[in-house]
Nucleic acid binder design. Structure first.
Lengths: 182, 182
DNA sequence: CGAGATATGTAGCAGTCGCTACATATCATC
DNA sequence: GATGATATGTAGCGACTGCTACATATCTCG
């Protein structure tokens, strides 16, 4: 790996930290470079574009998230929908995952407007998330896709309610969902 | 009403159009003023701040949304949760409400970072939404709060999946929710 | 008519944005 | 040690940001 590639890799890692701490909005070249211990000039040497910088950094953030998800449940474990929902929500609403969730919301808001690289990243994260749930939900083949989609929507919806300042509603929704489904 | 208040009012109305069309990110004074048929100078004459401009404009957008919600169902109508969910989702996922949903996501993303006026606006919209659902859901007093919160989360979650480019997952989640709940 | 309040245009400030031209420093290879 | 590739700093450009000072219109009321 050339020096350039090493620096680029190190920059991505530290910019991911910065992005998680400070958010996507207002993540401009100079602050990102400062966080990476570099300069805007060098960032545009390692990457072609600001979009390229953002795509690489968001990709790293997404990779960390999926790694944390994989670590949360052993590969073969299968849970019924309500138990899985509770487990996922307690992870998602924890303070350690909160920075990821905040960035996730920003990415989705950008994707809703068709911006790149938000669209591609959002699709990737969501796809990985859906697959992860699909692999851990205990249901018949006929029911699994619907239950997995519903679980995904419920968790993301609760996440949104929490972000909007209504953690009470989010918790109530999760509790009702666990109670309602056998 | 003074001339100033008239112009201010007209500016809010046209800036709300602009915000719905172009989004919250990058809604800067000069484009907003141009949309209002005015100048940045005058915007800061009508309003104290850019934050003031944004708060007024977002407030107008929120007012329009709640008005549309109220028009969607007659005041006294009560529906069981699954039927209400279907009705709300078909409205939310329609092209006419899509601009509102895109702005809504941006507001929530800002609120998640504690920004003002996003926090206050998000809380207001969500509270109004919750009240609206509470008034139209047909359930016992014991079940109503949980069912309403869950319905809210499910709709917003499906909205998020749709925004992330997975309308298929959103529709599957809504279908599963309607099927699962009696 | 004249004086004061109200309304609006012009011009610009200091800062940030993404990005680039140019010069230089460091290093590997012949 | 000369030469070319790789790496990095300096400086700045033009556009945009929120915001303001100053001048000027226009209108109201005594």
């Amino acid at each position: 790996m050339s020096v350039r590639e090493q620096r680029r890799e190190a920059a991505i890692e530290r910019m991911a930290d910065h992005l998680l701490a400070e958010g996507l909005a207002g993540a401009s070249l100079r602050p990102l470079a400062a966080a990476a211990g570099s300069s805007d000039r060098m960032l545009l040497y390692y990457f072609t574009d600001k979009d390229d910088v953002l795509a690489a950094t968001l990709g790293r953030v997404a990779a960390r998230l999926t790694a944390m998800l994989d670590a949360a449940l052993e590969p073969g474990a299968k849970l019924p929908a309500d138990a899985l929902l509770g487990a996922v929500w307690s992870a998602m609403s924890s303070e350690t995952l909160a920075p990821f969730m905040r960035v996730w919301l920003e990415v989705v808001a950008g994707a809703a407007r068709g911006q790149e690289p938000h669209r591609a990243i959002a699709s990737g994260i969501l796809g990985g998330f859906a697959d992860w749930i699909d692999g851990h939900i205990d249901a018949t083949d006929a029911q699994r896709p619907g239950q997995a989609a519903l679980l995904l929507a419920t968790v993301d919806g609760a996440l949104l309610l929490d972000a909007a300042g209504r953690r009470d509603l989010a918790d109530a929704a999760i509790a009702a969902a666990c109670a309602a489904r056998p």
